[in-house]
Each structure stands twice: as C-alpha cells, then as structure tokens.
C-alpha cells in the first residue's frame, strides 16, 4: 500500500513538474514573439504603432531607426568615453540652427526648433554595461500631444544590456 502511495506521489510530482515546464516554455515563447527589436546592446518590446525602419537602419552601423506615425526615433549606440554633457551638446547642435533647449534634466533634454514648422526633440540618455545609448524622439510640434503617450509607451518597453 505504501509503495503504491509512493509511486502515485512520485507520478504526481513528475506530472506537476512537466506542467510547470510547459507553462514556462509558453511564457518564454510569448516573450520572444513580443520583441520588436533586439541586438547585443538593447531590446525593445513590441509596442502598438511602433515599427523598425528597416531600410534606414540597414545603412547604419551605430543607429537604429523606429517610427510611429509622425514620430521618429533614432537610437544611437555610443562609446562610454564621452560624458553626457558632451553628448547633450552634440545632439543639440545636430538639430537646425534655430533650436532651443527647453528642458534639461540629468538624463534627458527637450529641444524645440524655432522655425515656421517646429520640430520637438525628446532625448533620453541611458547607460549600458559597455555602451551608452541615446534615444532621440522627433515629432512635429503640432502633433506632440498625441505622440507623448507613444513616447512613454516606448520608454517602458526598453531593456538595456
């Protein structure tokens, strides 16, 4: 009787273990499906509306380009040699001449061009283990309110290695 009980318990334990493995596998396969983009330095979860600009990205070595409607995002991989202040200055000077710095936090700046058609830039600086990453979101000022949520959603889906 005891033996029978022991065998049944073992059988049950094995069955439960297998079931758990199966659910883990399901979760893992779910995670791999939900990745929008990944490389050695960072990974982006799939987010509604966002896509990778494959053509533009193929021509680049250090940059990956994403878009969502009128919002564009340039992700740049930079070495750790440069300080954030230098990177902030370089990004600002990459915009057209009449650009203004409207917000400056530790790892974030907001820029706005001062032209007939203004472009807003939201720039986030992230630290990876071997690289620094710059996320430059660009959007026409008139569509900025709509794109705010898109930018926030994207920022929540970033994993940096």
């Amino acid at each position: 009787m005891k033996r029978a009980m022991m065998i049944t318990c073992l059988f049950l334990l094995c069955a439960c273990g297998q079931g758990e493995d199966a659910t883990n596998d399901d979760n893992n396969s779910g995670q791999t499906e939900a990745v929008l983009y990944e490389n050695d330095v960072f990974q982006i979860e799939e987010i509604d509306g966002w896509s990778v600009d494959q053509e533009a990205t193929a021509e680049q070595e250090q940059n990956v380009i994403f878009s969502n409607g009128t919002t564009r995002l340039i992700v740049s991989i930079v070495s750790k040699e440069q300080t954030i202040d230098t990177l902030k200055k370089d990004v600002q000077s990459s915009f057209s001449k009449k650009v203004e710095l409207i917000e400056d936090d530790e790892n974030y700046i907001a820029l706005l061009t001062n032209r007939k058609e203004n472009i807003r830039g939201d720039v986030y600086f992230h630290q990876g283990s071997e690289h620094q990453l710059i996320f430059t979101f660009m959007t026409p000022e008139q569509h900025y309110q709509e794109s705010k949520n898109q930018i926030n959603a994207f920022n929540e889906g970033i994993t940096i290695f």
């Binding site: 940059n63 564009r72 990004v91 057209s96 007939k116 472009i119 830039g121």
Partner: peptide, 28 residues
C-alpha cells in the same frame, strides 16, 4: 565653431540622421 559635429566625431552619422529626420518631418 564648437556648435557643429565634425566628420571625425562619433556622433557624426547620428547628426546627419537628425538633419534628415528634421527635413522629412518638414512639409512646406
């Protein structure tokens, strides 16, 4: 003079991309 990213700098390609994106988002 400091206000430009020169071709020998690491962010030069990024700066060109930013220029092109600004151009792409401008309609007039």
């Amino acid at each position: 003079a400091e206000e430009t990213v020169t071709p020998d700098e690491e962010l030069y390609d990024t700066s060109i991309l930013i220029e092109e994106t600004e151009l792409a988002l401008t309609e007039e």
